[in-house]
């Protein structure tokens, strides 16, 4: 950018900012733009960048991994450095849910409910082996074999428990992906869809489908058929 007013000591930037705005409003980012107050970008790109740069986490603890998650939020590791460390207690204010622990049959529907309450777009970080496959408790009669049986997971952080550094890395990776507009097309289908989903849409199927009351959906844990068994 060329300066058109070389005689005055004022910089172009200052001139454009006008009177009354003091330098406190200047940011590193503003400075990086140089004299031009405009940027040209795609709106989607911009939104993705914004999204990835400021994520609100759900304050959500399940099991042992949540202790390391607290350490990740706490001093020393301080996830907030990366713009992703404000735990919100309400799912309606959160963008990201870190699933830190073992999911059992009694908790799975509740977790799904919490997930459903989060506004779109929402992201899931699976923390620990338990959310991958049931981890050390995989053989338990009551243990869901991975978070993906209940909700879709964007990033898996393996470990039992993962070190805070690993979780930071996982979250940073997620931010990177979000900023790039990549999203993992993971879907979790309820039991009924899994059972009837691939049938031809004939009369009988229609009839059966009509019988499904969405409010009465059933979660069925078929331990023998579980994918990770």
């Amino acid at each position: 950018m060329s300066s058109d007013n070389t005689n005055t000591p004022q910089t172009t930037q200052e001139a454009r900012m006008g009177e009354g705005v003091d330098s406190r409003f200047n940011s590193t980012l503003r400075e990086a733009f140089g004299s031009s107050p405009f940027i040209l970008t795609k709106f989607d790109k911009f939104m993705n960048w914004v999204r990835g740069s400021s994520m609100f986490m759900l304050q959500f603890g399940i099991a042992c991994c949540s202790i390391e998650m607290m350490h990740t939020y706490g001093v020393k590791h301080d996830l907030d450095r990366f713009g992703a460390g404000v735990p919100r207690a309400s799912p309606r204010q959160a963008d990201v849910i870190i699933v830190p622990g073992t999911i059992v049959s009694k908790f799975a529907p509740r977790m799904k409910r919490v997930y459903d309450q989060m506004p779109e777009p929402k992201f899931v970080v699976g923390m620990g082996s338990c959310t991958i496959s049931g981890g050390p408790f995989q053989e338990g009669y009551n243990v869901i074999k991975g978070a993906e049986e209940v909700i879709p997971v964007d990033i898996h952080v393996p470990g039992c428990p993962p070190r805070p550094e690993a979780l930071v890395y996982g979250v940073a990776k997620l931010q990177e992906r979000i900023a790039n507009g990549e999203s993992a097309p993971v879907t979790v289908s309820p039991y009924e869809l899994e059972q009837f989903g691939d049938l031809d849409d004939d009369e009988l199927v229609q009839h059966l489908a009509d019988q499904i009351d969405e409010d009465e959906l059933v979660m069925r844990y078929d331990w023998a058929e579980s994918p990770s068994q």
């Binding site: 009669y141 009465e216 059933v218 979660m219 069925r220 078929d222 331990w223 023998a224």
Partner: peptide, 16 residues
């Protein structure tokens, strides 16, 4: 005599 393979059902309604 517990059979760990049997499917278990958790109704949404119960937890709704």
């Amino acid at each position: 005599d517990y059979d760990q393979e049997q499917p278990q059902v958790v109704e949404f309604a119960e937890h709704a």
